[in-house]
Design a binder for these strands. Structure first.
Lengths: 205, 205
DNA sequence: CATCTCAGATGACAGTGTCAACGGTATAGT
DNA sequence: ACTATACCGTTGACACTGTCATCTGAGATG
């Protein structure tokens, strides 16, 4: 009772899930088209019916992950039950959580997208949407004046914190600081800066 | 007139240079042991006499790059002609310059080191030294109280800015901000924070 | 029912990392 | 001075990878 289009879409999904699973558990080296096919119950050549390229498959995974992140941030932004002052922290926390729970996926999300132009564009659009959601949250908090600058600083900094923690370059016994403390310091610093830097009163961060 | 040890050390160096060159020009995919060997004037199996592994070779390259960075930062730190207030900016600029001039090398430096334990340890030590130099510069500037916190925040943030710029995720027409402006804002924010946060007077950033 | 379309299977190929075996040469030991 | 050793580099081989051309069969289309 399954049409051919439905079955094709199902295998496409199975391929994406298989590749994502292999990436999570075994890292990038474990993602081989043969293993992906096997895990999806299909043979090694089948992926080429759905993705022109291995890189395009990986980029599609990154695009989906970025879309999920954008959804999460958007959910936080529009949730009336979340106090506005908490929204930024929660959004940033969503980003860090990806890095901790799925470090290989996280690296893929922040790598330069490769492969088919269509896949690259999809990933870029997803990244754009995620960034726009962050931007909107920051815009709701601080005055419009330096929104972009503060948002960019927040996003890049939290990415740097997460990335160095994930890669093990943020040793706790050297720095005596956790990633959370760093983010917290950063957020409150920017909050203070926003308050005294602009004329109109802004919410407290 | 060349002893055997000298010639061996020479080929080892040639292999490292060849691999680094290939990485710079062609990205990680271009670094194949065969190509490395050919570029170093040697055959495909020769690298195994100097490195147990391809990963170890790459990690050795990362270690050398981190050592060079540490040297640069140290040179800035001890240079009496450099005004103390400029030292931090120059040190951070050295980091960003690596990212811009050698993006693939930069990514390798901040990846989790892989391969032989000895190679991993060498890279970790080099990274440690580079971080210590940054730490020392920050320590000279701000009071000892929150040195580590500020230094960690600076390092991770500038890494995040550089990384996202390198990977193309910091689109200029969305954020209306350059990487330099972000670093500048961050540094002055931390400077302000350090001044008003601690009792003892600190130098201006 | 005849035809077409296309997802998937299969065979093949070049390229890769890695290892085992080999050869030659500078060094060390006597 | 002669031998033995250590060790750098070469070569052949193997398993594995991404990718393509070709083939097959079943659902869609007329």
């Amino acid at each position: 009772m399954v049409s051919r289009a439905e079955s094709a879409a199902a295998t496409r999904r199975a391929l994406l899930n298989a590749a994502a699973g292999l990436l999570d558990t075994g890292g990038p080296d474990a993602v081989t088209l043969r293993a992906v096919g096997a895990r999806a119950g299909v043979t090694r050549g089948a992926p080429y019916r759905h993705f022109p390229d291995k890189d395009s498959l990986l980029t599609a995974i990154a695009a989906e992950a970025l879309d999920r992140l954008a959804d999460q941030v958007q959910a936080v932004r529009v949730d009336l039950r979340v106090p506005p002052a908490d929204k930024l922290r929660r959004a940033l926390s969503a980003l860090m959580t990806v890095g901790r729970r799925q470090p290989h996926l996280y690296r893929l999300m922040f790598a330069s997208p490769a492969g088919d132009p269509a896949a690259v564009q999809a990933a870029s659009q997803a990244a754009d949407r995620a960034q726009d959601e962050f931007l909107a949250i920051v815009g709701d908090l601080v005055g419009a004046q330096h929104t972009r600058q503060f948002a960019a600083l927040l996003l890049t900094s939290v990415h740097g914190i997460t990335d160095m923690e994930v890669s093990g370059h943020l040793s706790a016994d050297k720095w005596h600081v956790t990633a959370e403390e760093l983010v917290s310091t950063l957020v409150s610093m920017i909050g203070r800066q926003a308050r005294q830097g602009s004329d109109n009163a802004t919410l407290s961060l």
